Simulated scan of single mutants.
Amino acid sequence: MARIEETPWLDPGQQRAWRGYRRLRLLVDTRVARDLAVDSGLSDPDYDVLSELSEAAGHRRRLGELAERMLWSQSRMSHHVKRMQQRGLVRREECARDGRGAEVVLTAEGLRVIEEAAPRHVASVRRNLIDLLSAEQIAMLEQIADTVVERIEPRT
């Protein structure tokens, strides 16, 4: 472990960038999550699960794959899926390909809910981030996101 006198501290510009990013993330996440809850009654994780399933082949994904895509433990995902099942948004099925594990499948109700929620969610994302930036800033944000994601989680 590095000792305090050996720590490569952030310079003032790096510190402002870091703190600005943290504040930006909190503000945008909070406002978009609030809008989502008010507009559709969904939580961020509900929306993430439904959108992942709506974009997947056959509207299904293995439970473990879904957990991995959301950076969650399989246990946490299992509990969340159970709550979504109780609301009729998804169902669990035995994996048709190999009979091992479970797949999470989007129900007709889940598809209806995500299709209804998506336009309002996009409007919130636009209102709280995208429309506040120039085309050049959006391109820069995309480049920054790609760089950081690729270095933290390289594609295999």
Rank of each mutant, 00 (worst) to 15 (best):
E150W: 08
A56W: 01
R100Y: 15
E115P: 01
V32P: 01
E6F: 13
R25F: 06
R60A: 10
V125L: 15
S43A: 15
A17F: 12
S51F: 07
P154G: 06
R22T: 08
R60T: 13
E68A: 15
M84H: 00
A33P: 02
R91P: 06
A108W: 13
M140H: 08
D44L: 14
Y47K: 04
A123Y: 00
R151C: 11
A123P: 02
Q14Y: 02
T107H: 05
A17V: 11
R23L: 08
Q85D: 14
L50V: 00
D29V: 02
D131S: 14
R23C: 03
L42Y: 00
E5K: 10
S134M: 03
V28N: 06
R61A: 06
L26G: 07
T7L: 14
K82H: 13
L111P: 02
R127G: 00
A2N: 04
S51Q: 10
V28Y: 10
I152H: 09
M84V: 03
R62Q: 12
T156C: 02
S54K: 10
A96H: 12
V81D: 01
V28E: 08
M140P: 00
P45S: 12
R34W: 12
G13H: 10
Y21A: 05
I144G: 09
P119F: 04
L50Y: 00
A139L: 15
V122H: 09
M70D: 02
V38H: 05
Q85F: 05
G41E: 10
R61S: 04
A102H: 05
W72A: 06
E68M: 08
D44C: 10
V49I: 14
A117Y: 01
D48R: 12
A67W: 01
L141W: 03
R127V: 05
A67V: 01
P154K: 04
R25T: 12
T156Y: 09
A139V: 11
R23A: 14
A145H: 11
E55A: 13
E109T: 13
E5C: 10
T156G: 09
S40V: 02
R120H: 09
I144C: 10
H79P: 03
P119V: 03
L129Y: 15
R126V: 14
S124D: 05
R112Y: 08
R23Y: 05
D146C: 07
E115D: 15
R60G: 07
E116W: 14
D48C: 09
S54E: 12
A37L: 14
A96M: 09
R87V: 05
K82R: 15
G20I: 07
D35R: 04
N128E: 15
R112V: 01
L129Q: 04
E65Y: 03
R92G: 03
R151P: 01
R69K: 11
E115A: 12
S40G: 04
G110K: 00
Q15W: 07
P119Y: 04
